[in-house]
């Protein structure tokens, strides 16, 4: 019979990393040990535990990783609770990839890139960051502003410190909301930090985080002289099918699962404010 998108494939969890008190990163491969499918940075997949639920998660690993996919998942409901309790070796069902992904091979090519993330919002950006790091010569400067509530809430902290921070031409700016013992980095909210850092507008911005953070950061960027056409973000709405048919995830005439989740900020302005 011909393939049906709603019928999932099998995945096996081969590694579980505890990132923060409420975020874990799961490594998933097919039962034969290979990758379940290929993807573009910014695309998502439907993960499920039968009987518990199915939900959309962004793929946090880069497509340049040829061995496995990773998902950084925050505990916030029934399915994610279950996922947080599972052990290595657990099978899950997986289908995808869904969505448009970031234009890494077109618009972003040759550009200076500024990544801005808050909290779990780093998850979808990590795929892009590691992708452009892999093809370093195809892109200009890379700046990363990443903030979280506390030091313990920074996702992927080890990779940030051991890989991103030491790489030449990659500038990492970390911040946490409040002073904390053992933290000698910047303290303050992401939107203010971005303004303080005062970036040159010769950059393409990729932003992801809580809606309120995005709202204030966009305002700050516009003060700095950035245009909305330079800013890309990724959206999150409730999803069921992932392919623009179940009618659930639309903002106006656009389906986030199919036409998104990546939007240029001026495109979002064209849509009704219902997200």
């Amino acid at each position: 019979m011909i393939e049906e998108v709603l019928i999932p494939k099998l995945g096996v969890v081969t590694d579980i990393r505890i990132d923060t008190p409420d975020v874990k990163t799961f490594r998933v491969v097919a039962p034969d040990g290979k990758k379940v499918f290929e993807h573009i940075p910014g695309q998502c997949a439907m993960l499920s535990i039968p009987g518990v639920g199915e939900a959309m998660f962004s793929i946090t690993s880069s497509p340049t990783n040829t061995e496995f996919m990773e998902f950084s998942i925050k505990k916030c409901g029934c399915l994610t609770d279950w996922l947080h309790h599972m052990e290595v070796g657990q099978q899950v069902t997986i289908r995808g990839p869904y969505g448009n992904g970031f234009p890494v091979d077109t618009v972003f090519k040759g550009k200076n890139l500024l990544f801005i993330a808050g909290g779990i919002g780093l998850a979808p950006l990590r795929s892009v960051i590691n992708y452009v790091r892999h093809y370093r010569d195809s892109y200009g400067t890379i700046d990363i502003v990443y903030g979280s509530r506390s030091m313990d809430d920074l996702v992927d902290y080890k990779e940030i410190i051991n890989e991103w921070c030491v790489e030449e031409g990659v500038n990492v700016h970390l911040t946490i909301d409040r002073e904390q013992e053992g933290w000698d980095g910047h303290v303050g909210f992401v939107p203010n930090y971005v303004k303080e850092l005062g970036f040159d507008t010769n950059k393409t911005v990729i932003i992801c985080g809580p809606p309120i953070m995005i709202k204030f950061t966009l305002a700050g960027l516009s003060e700095l002289g950035f245009d909305k056409t330079q800013v890309f973000t990724t959206m999150e709405l409730k999803m069921k099918c992932g392919v623009g048919k179940c009618g659930r995830c639309n903002i106006g005439s656009k389906y986030v699962c199919k036409d998104g989740p990546v939007f240029r900020c001026d495109e979002l302005d064209e849509l009704p404010n219902e997200y």
Partner: peptide, 24 residues
Amino acid sequence: CQCYDIKDFETGHGVKRYRCWDSC
């Protein structure tokens, strides 16, 4: 109207996944 939901149902000896009409 074509909106649908996808749900799981415990059958007692497994899980059935079905889709059904939903309403906006």
